[in-house]
Design a protein around this nucleic acid. Structure first.
Lengths: 210, 210, 210, 210
DNA sequence: TATGAATGAGGATTCATTCAT
DNA sequence: TATGAATGAATCCTCATTCAT
């Protein structure tokens, strides 16, 4: 009757929910977004019923995983934005992409999952917040003269997304690949007097408009 | 009973097979590698029975699509290698990647498809042949002094693969995105006296070794 | 620990039980006897746990609803029997059937529910008591010469049950339907010199013997 | 390639379909409209897959059974209408109701099934055709002076529906019950100079309007 | 040989019932 | 004792694959 048991219950439920989310994230990334719900439940150490109590169907689970992922990305983007210069912030953000890999790749996988995530309001909000932070970083870096002037935030977002792909190797070799691709991309992004990109800058509005 | 009807039959069978492959490729890319076999058959204008006569199961179909894709890539790579300079060959090859998108993305999608393709002997042979061609181009471009010396064929292969991703837009905007990312990557790949990449070059042996 | 809280508890428990019964009755009639137990609990304003404390399983709940229903029918039948003449008692009893509709229809719906109810001892006793009252009324009306002599109590019971059906309309129209069907049946039941029914009278023993 | 094999195939499929319909009808009436689809399939001697190929889901199966039922009723109603007098036609139609029992009871059972059937276009058309036939019979019998003048087609339809209920007995006893109730109702319906029903006639428009 | 009907295993989802709080 | 979270068995439905025509 007091608030205490209720709170403890909530703590339990919360823990359950977190375990399910963690298990789902892992399995989505290892095996794709079609893994049997029952396996997710088993990996989370709960019964299917519990999984369905928290997430009414697979879509809801995918949305929840996506929101959780994007929330983490937002946190890291904000931390990166604390760097003294815009360029440093950009480098840090891109460097972290490696850690965000697991986090965001889901959205890139199956066409169905893409649609679900793209249409999810919660994820949209996180995405917009992330793009706002990125926008700041980009402008700062351009004002400093370190980032080439003929790119816009959309271009940089695409560069970030390139780094989220699955690389064709495991462990340290995969790390090395990311590191080197990142270095190549930074070379390309650095302001250079003689270089000009084709077409027009990609803006945030160009993204996700399918 | 003469050779004639048999030949005509073969022609028919060939046409059937091609239709199925084309339909499967399209549907794999539009809807992922889990599209019902029956839908593929319908799109190909044949019954499921016919589909199964040509391809004993889904894996076989995936393998066939992959081989067909890689064969096309090989053809285009060889054509690109005809360019007068190594750098031009490289630019052309990377530029064509956009057209290879549809062709190869399958391997990047579902973890299951990845495994099937990676373990398929036929695809492996095509892949090796492609990498041989790429290897030639890379060396020529480096000998010319246009491609930075601290990359190896594996690095370039990864750059190619980056361009095969699904970009977050449709139609012309997606084309524009690819064009600009390609330009950024070429900037990064260009030989520069003052620039050095971290780690060691990625070799062909580093690829796909998971 | 004193008797007082225990008594209050009983009052509470009683109220709980009544709420559950009322909710269950309503939902059984609106949605059939398969409504989720959880929805019944919600409608009753209690948790499922409480519902299960009172009624160990769905069958027990169905039995309880049936007994409650039949008890009401018995009460009304006894009240009808107070009428001055047997025919008036019969008319009143049949007229009340309309109000008994909700009460008894459950037994007519799903085959499963029928079996549960038919085999329930408590319900059987109520049913027998009701049939005893009806038997009295029938004999009185026949002794008066108003009810045809070639029917027996079983025939009349069946006529009652006919009026418990769900009529294909809502609200006043449904009332009207019942009223007119009732009038037709009373015409048929009225003693008439020239009319004779086929077969033999249906006795109480003929009922429910499946 | 000729029409022959196709026809034979259709014959097979048709036979399968008929078996499924027959099995479903039987089981719906024995066990209610919630019997597991798998049991229906087993009773029909086919796999679930076949059942689902013919009837995409349970609703479709219920609709098909209902249409089949109503079609039979229509046939019998038309046959009854051939009787020389309207009253004889009416008696025959009501007498056949006993055989229609199995046929139509489905619509009276679960609220869900009722809704599905009521909203099914095909069933609606059969129902309307049946009511047209009934309307003719009613008018003929009234013109003859044998059917009471203060009923309308809706009243008679309701009387028919009363006879479709499940009677509380099996076998011959149930037959006897129907026979006697039918006789009582015919007594009530017979034109009588001194008798008048309450309210106004129930028209076809009053039916099913919930 | 082509077709598409049949099969049944597999995976999603629901809900009766139990049990920890 | 009341609550509602957890469990898992039961059922729905889909689709890969086989096989009769």
């Amino acid at each position: 009757m007091t608030a205490d048991p209720e709170t403890r219950l909530r703590a339990d439920a919360r823990r359950n929910r977190d375990q399910i989310l963690a298990a789902a994230k892992q399995m989505f990334f290892d095996d794709g977004p079609d893994v049997p719900m029952e396996e997710i439940a088993r990996a989370a150490g709960v019964g299917v019923g519990t999984l369905y109590r928290r997430f009414p169907d697979r879509e809801a689970l995918i949305r929840a995983v996506a929101q959780d992922n994007f929330a983490r990305v937002l946190t890291e983007a904000r931390a990166a934005a604390e760097e003294p210069t815009g360029w440093q912030a950009l480098v840090r953000l891109l460097g972290q992409s490696r850690e965000l890999q697991l986090s965001v790749r889901l959205a890139l996988v199956s066409p169905q999952a893409s649609v679900i995530i793209r249409e999810d309001r919660g994820t949209q909000e996180f995405r917009n917040a992330i793009l706002d932070v990125l926008d700041d970083i980009v402008h700062r870096a351009q004002d400093e003269g370190s980032l080439r002037a003929d790119v816009s935030t959309g271009d940089v977002a695409i560069v970030v997304s390139l780094l989220l792909r699955r690389f064709p190797a495991k462990g340290e070799t995969a790390e090395l690949m990311i590191e080197r691709v990142l270095a190549l991309l930074l070379e390309g992004l650095r302001a250079r007097p003689d270089s000009v990109l084709p077409g027009r800058p990609i803006t945030v509005e160009d993204l996700y408009l399918r």
